[in-house]
């Protein structure tokens, strides 16, 4: 199992370094712009906001989908040819995801603290907002776990469905299921709610977005994920 996780890291280390560097650059750039604005007198307050990324929800949502993704035309079956059970392969990916999240979150949180510390040393009159706390780190980890769980369940369901359907069909069924749930929840709520008589007013649309931003965001995540897979033609994800 350790060897399998090490192999995933070796395979994904480039992508991991790239993602970390991009997020760190955005964070640094955000602080630098605010600092320059403050020095030039364009900032009304003495407070700088650290642009911190909540990686938990993102990796929690997309990570589960990574576990589901196996690529097309037999690609990504490399590990299945080895003398390992498919649950070992599955578990290997899940543990890798958890470690990946821990590494990325720890790097970003420490970077935020470090940047804030260095800036504070140079400009003691400045204040900061958005500096991550241990409570924030805990909440982020919790959202990672909360979001990973349903997607891992779906991945396991996908394996189970493969008893009857091909892996492609099983995956398509899952995607259809996710989309159906995303679409069905607001429609059912509207139908069952006494105030909605199937008339969509501006208010009801606003209420709908207010109420269902969670599923909508999840739907958006999905669209982004599949869009990205299409754009990269599964190049980076096919062997995952």
């Amino acid at each position: 199992m350790i060897e399998l996780i090490k192999l995933h890291f070796k395979n994904k280390q480039h992508s991991l370094i790239q993602i970390t560097l991009i997020l760190l650059s955005i964070m640094l750039l955000g602080v630098a712009i605010q600092l320059i604005s403050w020095k030039m007198g364009h900032l009304d307050t003495n407070t700088i906001k650290i642009p911190m990324f909540p990686v938990g929800p993102w990796i929690g949502t997309l990570g589960g989908l990574f576990v589901l993704a196996r690529g097309r035309n037999g690609e990504g079956k490399f590990l299945s040819r080895l003398p390992m059970t498919k649950y070992e392969v599955f578990l290997g990916k899940v543990i890798f995801l958890a470690i990946l999240y821990a590494v990325l979150a720890a790097t970003l949180f420490s970077a935020a603290w470090l940047i804030a510390g260095v800036v504070k040393l140079l400009y003691p009159s400045l204040h900061f907002s958005g500096i991550p706390t241990f409570q924030g780190l805990g909440q982020d980890s919790l959202s990672f776990l909360k979001l990973t769980a349903p997607f891992l369940f779906l991945a396991a369901l996908g394996f189970w469905l493969q008893k009857w359907f091909s892996s492609d069909t099983a995956r398509n069924l899952l995607v259809l299921g996710i989309l159906a749930i995303t679409i069905a929840i607001p429609i059912l709520t509207m139908l069952l709610s006494p105030n909605h008589l199937l008339i969509l007013t501006n208010n009801s649309i606003a209420r709908f977005f207010e109420r269902f931003h969670g599923p909508l965001l999840a739907g958006l995540d999905l669209a982004l994920f599949f869009g990205a897979m299409g754009l990269y033609r599964l190049r980076h994800f096919r062997n995952f």
Binding site: N11, K12, E75
Partner: peptide
């Protein structure tokens, strides 16, 4: 054992 297509290999390993 089997010899899969080279495209199935992990590229950065």
């Amino acid at each position: 054992t089997s010899v899969p297509s080279p495209t199935e290999m992990f590229p950065t390993v």
